[in-house]
């Protein structure tokens, strides 16, 4: 038996198992730490509805603003970041949740599945997400302010998210970067290894914003709703 197969079985088996547990424990640790930082006592009576504030902030942030970005100052100031960032997140979401192979991973973990999109659509969006990531990387390199505030962890974040995406795209085409033909197993191994690395890395990096984004949006939405100033 080739060493690739043994390593692949390890990467898909015990290593993934361990990485997933570290991910779960790490995220729980982060969330609890933040929750226990302390809350200011709420002494002021509500002027408006907290719930309404939360609803409005999500509706605007996820459903309306992405389609009329020019009304936002963030967009006018950083168009590359906004557009490439948007394309990256959208592509990533589609690939992770609506790609058939990934849905089967969720199904094996959660016990239920859902309909998925056709391969060419997922394939196109994953390519778009990869291009967006490269654009974000170049932007970070070229923009003097961004470069100034980028430490090693920022560059590592980019790399650690980039690796699973490139190897995953290569996996569907049996070619790394669309050029180097490699056996499926080798690409699968690279993909699983980079995924395992990412799972372990996420809780201790800013990629954990996939959870804290919702945390902070809910909190700020509620605060705005309480003061009856719609976000």
């Amino acid at each position: 038996m080739g060493s690739t197969d043994a390593t692949l079985a390890f990467a898909r088996g015990p290593l993934f198992y361990t990485a997933l547990l570290i991910f779960i424990a790490g995220m729980a640790y982060r969330l609890v730490s933040v929750l226990l930082l302390g809350w200011k006592r709420d002494r002021v009576p509500n002027k408006g509805s907290k719930l309404r504030g939360v609803a409005v902030t999500y509706a605007k942030g996820l459903l309306i603003f992405p389609f009329i970005p020019w009304v936002k100052k963030t967009f006018r100031g950083n168009q590359t970041t906004y557009l490439a960032g948007g394309m990256f997140h959208f592509g990533l979401f589609v690939v992770i949740f609506l790609g058939t192979a990934h849905m089967l991973v969720w199904k094996s973990l959660l016990g239920f599945g859902w309909p998925t999109l056709a391969l060419p659509i997922v394939d196109f969006l994953s390519a778009a997400a990869i291009v967006a990531m490269i654009a974000l990387f170049v932007n970070r390199l070229a923009n003097p302010v961004l470069r100034l505030i980028s430490g090693p962890s920022e560059w590592l974040n980019l790399l650690i998210v980039f690796l699973p995406m490139v190897t995953g795209y290569g996996l569907t085409h049996h070619r790394l970067l669309g050029i180097v033909a490699l056996p499926y197993e080798n690409l699968y191994l690279m993909h699983m290894m980079s995924i395992n690395l990412m799972l372990i890395w996420i809780p201790f990096s800013r990629i954990s914003h996939f959870m804290f984004y919702f945390f902070s949006r809910t909190y700020h939405g509620a605060q705005a709703g309480k003061r009856a100033v719609m976000p």
Binding site: L31, V32, H102
Partner: peptide, 26 residues
Amino acid sequence: QGQSAPISRPTITVAGAALAAGAVIG
């Protein structure tokens, strides 16, 4: 099981234990 599915998966108990362990450390 899907071809892409992991070979070994934590059970709900093990995952819950990991969650609890993380929370306790927090």
